[in-house]
């Protein structure tokens, strides 16, 4: 019996180590292959003749797309979460809304990209541009911001609300002054995780934002915009030289770094939040 226990334990431990190893191998592989191309010029120049030059417009483009995405998804998500958590009574309609929000989170991103292409690019005639790409990304992360915000709002103790209401403070003012104030680290964590998803998303921006190789910076939200994931996709599938190969990994390394910075921020914020909430 004891031997069997040990074997099971060893097997589980190996599985856990393997999971970590996969991550380390992927990151290590990208690092080893990509670090050579990283230089100030690579980060600050525009690409030319397909596989030459740097990825400055791609970095800026990715940041712009995420910004547009957040400008749309954060207010929508937080407002929906406030409604679901504070105003909606628990009935069929609320449960249906919540169910659809959950479903939306599971839709494959290529489908959201396709919807963005048909609805935003063609039907609303926005064209392939930063606005289309950002909004489509917004559709993608909306359910995540709704869910994270709703969870954060729900963990605010009911006693805070009652204390505020009993002082003659209106419900909306109570939500703004007490509930959101206590919930905001949780909401921010949700937004950061959404940002992480959005910045790495390829299919959605491939269909709605631009070709990935744009060598110029967008002048308005109606211009096509480059992005790191699409650039990586183009380099990996269309490039056949060693320059393209190294740029694939160089851009990947930049993307992973941006993602890690966002994730670490999210983690730190969440820990602070848990500590603050756990003090009572």
């Amino acid at each position: 019996m004891k031997v069997k226990d040990e074997i099971v334990k060893g097997g589980l431990c190996a599985a856990a180590l393997l999971s970590v190893a996969v991550l380390l191998i992927v990151v290590g592989y990208v690092f080893v292959n990509g670090i050579g191309v990283i230089s100030l010029n690579f980060l600050l120049e525009s690409p030319y003749r397909f596989e030459y030059g740097g990825i400055f417009p791609q970095i800026i483009g990715s940041i712009c797309l995420v910004a547009v995405c957040l400008i749309f998804a954060v207010p929508m998500g937080v407002a929906s979460a406030i409604y679901l958590a504070e105003y909606a009574s628990d009935n069929v309609i609320t449960r249906t809304v919540r169910f659809f929000v959950e479903c939306l989170a599971g839709i494959p991103s290529i489908v959201i990209g396709l919807f963005g292409l048909i609805f935003l690019v063609y039907y609303l005639d926005l064209g392939i541009c930063m606005l289309s790409g950002g909004l489509a990304l917004g559709f993608m992360i909306l359910p995540w911001t709704v869910r994270a915000s709703e969870e954060a709002i729900k963990t605010v103790p009911h006693a805070y609300r009652e204390a505020s209401l009993a002082l003659g403070v209106s419900k909306w003012r109570t939500i703004r002054s007490v509930v959101l104030k206590s919930a905001y680290p949780g909401i921010i964590t949700g937004i950061l995780l959404g940002m992480g998803k959005a910045i790495g998303e390829t299919a959605v921006v491939l269909l709605t934002a631009g070709s990935g190789l744009e060598s110029f910076l967008p002048k308005s939200i109606f211009d096509p915009v480059a992005s790191l994931p699409v650039y990586i996709y183009m380099m990996a599938t269309q490039g056949h030289t060693s320059a393209a190969y190294s740029r694939t990994f160089g851009a990947s390394l930049v993307l992973i770094t941006m993602f890690l910075v966002i994730s670490i921020f999210a983690l730190l914020l969440r820990n602070r939040y848990i500590r603050r909430m756990g003090r009572r």
Binding site: Y160, A166, L167
Partner: peptide, 28 residues
């Protein structure tokens, strides 16, 4: 709102807001 300003309430569990002493009293 006016009613609750006139008729205040103290609860079973102490429920100060997660803010400073000053902000708690100044809240209302």
């Amino acid at each position: 709102i006016q009613l609750r300003k006139k008729v205040g309430m103290v609860f079973q569990q102490p429920n100060p807001f997660p803010m400073s002493i000053y902000d708690n009293v100044a809240y209302g």
